[in-house]
Write a protein that binds this DNA or RNA. Structure first.
Lengths: 216, 216
DNA sequence: TAAAATCTAGGTACTTGTACCTAGATAATT
DNA sequence: AATTATCTAGGTACAAGTACCTAGATTTTA
């Protein structure tokens, strides 16, 4: 008897698990395992050694990222794929750093899932189109990353720190206190950021910051 | 030929739709319709007049709540069920006010979905256990809609209009222009809102507005 | 009809943010 | 070693938001 390909689905939402299972069953003959939290997921990866594990990043007990780190440290052969709701560049970069083979946004069509599984089983990588911008940025030295939040890369580290707090709707005074600098310094940073991003008028910066909070 | 019971699934995440479809198909013989946004959902409710519509509250184009309000105003016979990620008491109360028949949290087990469908088809209500607390509160205390966004109910219609535009980060001048009133009027509304909501300090109103935008 | 709520618009004072400057200290790069 | 970028902090001016007032017109409610 030929050994069936094993695949693990780890997500805390049973509906998502059902959806994934349905999609996978309709397109493959894989043996499917389900985990509703990170701990369970890691256990199943260790026990069953599936070819692929689809890991939701946001999970109770243990995040998908932590599972991946642990699985990697134990040199398990399972190919890891992240499923997530958010276009989070930081997380994406962290995922690439630990050798994740696929990164799929849940918002996208279900066909992406099957594409991803196929690609990963063929030894390739699969990234949702919406986040492949990040990869370009990552590999090309990053001067002009296209897509949303592209200009953010022009900012200096301190400017980014300030912008993060602006996104939290802190006042310049509050930001100054938290960074142990003068309010004038913060105000200047705000201005410089506005100039770099081409922002003008009342609340322009605040609006930008909140809308692009995810890419900071 | 016996007419099959029709059911509409409206959710912007195709995975969730697949999951719901799988669960429903496994347990019933219903004819299933899918909508990926609120607009499409309303159209399908109008055209197909399904017995039940499962509406995700958070959807593009038109929220599930708006769909429900519209469907109600047209006196369509479809029983409406809300699906949501969040235990939001304000939304729950609004849902009850417009005669929603079921309110199910996505986090819960899939069996809830089938229970809910059964209950609603029998003419009953179904609420996820996790939010049935709200119902108790609602029927006992009644006057004070507690929980998130509770104080919004205290606002006058004009104040709510203003707050909506504040959430869009418009300036008082811009809001004044759009409402054809003086900037002072808008500023006064802002102040009155702050007082009613107990808000103090810089950006307090803006912060509140953006965080509670969904309940305006 | 009288009372209460709402919408309107004004005044004043203060705080916060934006815009445009200069400029020294430090760190990074060439 | 010199240039550049960054971080720091100051000044000035104006726009916008917050806080606390008064007050007339209109609408709702009792």
């Amino acid at each position: 008897m030929n050994k069936r390909t094993k695949i693990l689905i780890a997500d805390d939402h049973s509906l998502i698990r059902k959806g994934l299972r349905q999609v996978i069953e309709a397109n493959t003959g894989f043996e499917i395992f389900e985990a509703e939290n990170g701990k369970k997921a890691l256990e199943l990866i260790q026990q069953e050694k599936p070819e692929i594990a689809l890991l939701d990043i946001e999970m109770p007990e243990m995040s998908g990222y932590d599972v991946a780190v642990k699985a990697n440290s134990e040199e398990l052969s399972t190919h890891l794929v992240f499923l997530t709701m958010y276009k989070d560049e930081t997380m994406f970069n962290k995922a690439m750093d630990i050798g994740i083979r696929g990164y799929v946004l849940k918002e996208n069509t279900v066909t992406e899932i099957t594409k991803c599984i196929d690609a990963v089983l063929d030894g390739n990588y699969y990234l949702s189109p919406a986040i492949s911008d990040f990869l370009v940025k990552r590999n090309q030295g990053s001067n002009k990353p296209s897509g949303k939040g592209k200009e953010i890369q022009e900012l200096t580290p301190t400017e980014r720190k300030v912008l993060k707090q602006v996104a939290e709707m802190k006042t310049s005074q509050e930001i100054a206190d938290s960074l142990f600098v003068s309010i004038k310094t913060v105000q200047n940073h705000r201005n410089n950021i506005c100039n770099k991003l081409g922002l003008h008028g009342a609340h322009a910066l605040l609006k930008y910051a909140t809308e692009n909070e995810a890419y900071l």
